[in-house]
Nucleic acid binder design. Structure first.
Lengths: 332, 332
DNA sequence: GTGAAAGCGCTAACAG
DNA sequence: CTGTTAGCGCTTTCAC
């Protein structure tokens, strides 16, 4: 494998000149550029990126932390992030924390060890206390997640989860539902708690009280949706509607309802979150809250790259909130 | 940010000793180890991985090339690969080629530029001629894909696509279908062509001829499944069954059939491929060919890492074929 | 505009 | 078992 010195020797110039040609420094004599290019071509020279990284103290790589990538929302989010990063000349390293705090910290260590230039957290399990220690090593951006701590001071690109919970509840309450189950992905996820706040706000506006026993944790995939159906059926006082927090959970739940002859929405109304393609596939079509997934992904990547390039100051970015809306289909 | 020299100075030992402690070299005096550890801790020392990579000429990173990650099959594949790589101490860089030849080559360049140690190709668009030039820079493994060229000599972990096409066709032919549409993901994908071979073999066994006008290209997601439904409906001589090549396509197609009152399987039988969770969600349940996605992913990662560690010789690995099977549900 | 030289932070012979 | 030494391949002042 050839190095910059081999090229310099063959072209009869200095290594510095070769480096300048590689990096498209404009003030290089056309003659030299030509000779260098020719030599590079002849030798099949390819610059060694590790060496370059060491020297410039950058990797042009950013990490994104998600729980698991096969989740429909996250796979789409990460797909768009990857394409966007690529476009801007960066690599995206996808890190699956599986909601394990320890793993999440290990991925944050990528910043310390200089393996990535910045991190986008599309999922957080650790406390703000823990996370903030990493900020000294590079920029961290929250993507659709948040800290409940008042003093958490970190830029975030997200939707208004509180409002999402609010419009979901409002929609169901307007339809006359009074007992509504509320699902949270993961165990007390923060965005889930935000949504719950909005949910409760709607109940308050309707002068109704929410039965806390109807909160269901760890609802994150099709399989958990199936289980939740049976759990709800087993209740003495069954709810007449359920907010699932994700389309995947909704779809699992509806599928099981269909199998058991429970009519949706007559016997149980279902509202999802995200608006994935499966929301249109299931029968009946799923009413849901649409998230602008691609916009969230693009904005996150653009933002962190701007910060890395110094085009934007980390402390100036506060919170960017993207719009959501209710998509009415047949499940409510 | 502290370096190994800072630690050495504080601990009163040489940089080499610090390095040995970092790398858990066993032959280090306990006393020295303790002093070094203490110094590292005091200084908050974190080794710089770029420097290490440069020195050892490795990155402990492998790349996997897929078309797009939000596809249900690939997101699951890559999820498992990521977890497996992590377990074995490697990072997985996910590269989305979007089926663009140029992009695929750009990702292969990661090998040349020493940014990754090896590559797993879960998708190939370029010719064997092009790909083989990259083998001199590091190991490349095919994952569920293949080259049609006779002389292509490269290890691959995959299912028997030919057999998959065969059992799908056989199942439908046994049910009495004679006109069956055949979908291929992408445009002449290689695994798709393999499947078609098996498809034709079954026709031959039944002494039937296959109508080439029933081949449909570029079938890869839910949306294309929808379109295919209408395309099939528009035909003069409609097929009575369709092999979609993926569950996503099948589900899009069935969804549209339901909407239009076309009875599945009475008016149109549908068979998918993969056996994703959505196969059980759609109504009627989707008959499909189950791929051992997780096994494929694990075997691929294990294999390439063994090669990288020198525990296995690149040229000894031939082809590893994993079993598939027909899952009968209600759509056929 | 170009080259010489220093050094990014780490590891691995080698000698002791 | 430990320290000295010599780079890995590249970029970037700083003179010229």
């Amino acid at each position: 494998l050839k190095t910059i010195s081999d090229v310099a020797k063959l072209a009869g110039v200095s290594r510095a000149s070769v480096s300048r040609v590689i990096n498209n420094v404009p003030t290089v004599n056309a003659e030299i550029r030509k000779k260098v290019l020719k030599a590079m071509d002849e030798l099949g020279f390819i610059p060694n990126v590790s060496a370059r990284n060491l020297r410039i103290k950058q990797t042009r790589t950013i990490a994104v932390i998600v729980p698991l990538i096969s989740n429909l929302f996250f796979s789409r989010l990460v797909q768009t992030m990857g394409i966007e990063a690529e476009k801007l000349g960066y690599k995206l390293l996808i890190c699956q924390s599986r909601n394990i705090e320890k793993d999440e910290l290990n991925f944050l260590d990528l910043l310390k060890t200089r393996q990535v230039d910045g991190i986008v957290m599309a999922s957080v399990r650790n406390s703000w206390e823990k996370i903030k220690n990493y900020l000294q090593y590079g920029p961290i951006l929250m993507c659709n997640e948040c800290f409940l701590d008042e003093d958490a001071n970190i830029p975030s690109i997200k939707i208004d989860h509180e409002y999402g919970g609010y419009i979901a509840a409002q929609h169901l309450l307007k339809l006359g539902h009074k007992r509504i189950a509320f699902c949270i992905s993961g165990d007390d996820s923060r965005s889930g708690l935000e949504r719950k706040k909005g949910f409760l706000r709607a109940f308050k506006e309707f002068n109704l009280s929410f039965d806390e026993s109807l909160v269901i944790n760890n609802a994150f995939d099709i399989e958990s949706g199936r289980e939740i159906f049976y759990r709800l059926q087993a209740l003495e006082e069954r709810p007449t509607a359920v907010f699932t927090g994700s389309d995947e959970v909704a779809v699992g739940l509806i599928s099981e309802a269909n199998k058991n002859g429970v009519k949706i929405p007559e016997e149980l109304a279902v509202i999802g979150f995200d608006d994935n393609p499966i929301a249109k596939i299931i029968q009946p079509g799923l009413t849901t809250i649409r998230q602008p997934t691609d916009d969230i992904a693009k904005a996150s990547i653009e933002c962190i790259i701007q910060i890395l390039k110094g085009e934007r100051d980390f402390n100036d970015v506060k919170s960017i909130v993207l719009p959501i809306k209710l998509i009415k289909r047949e499940s409510t």
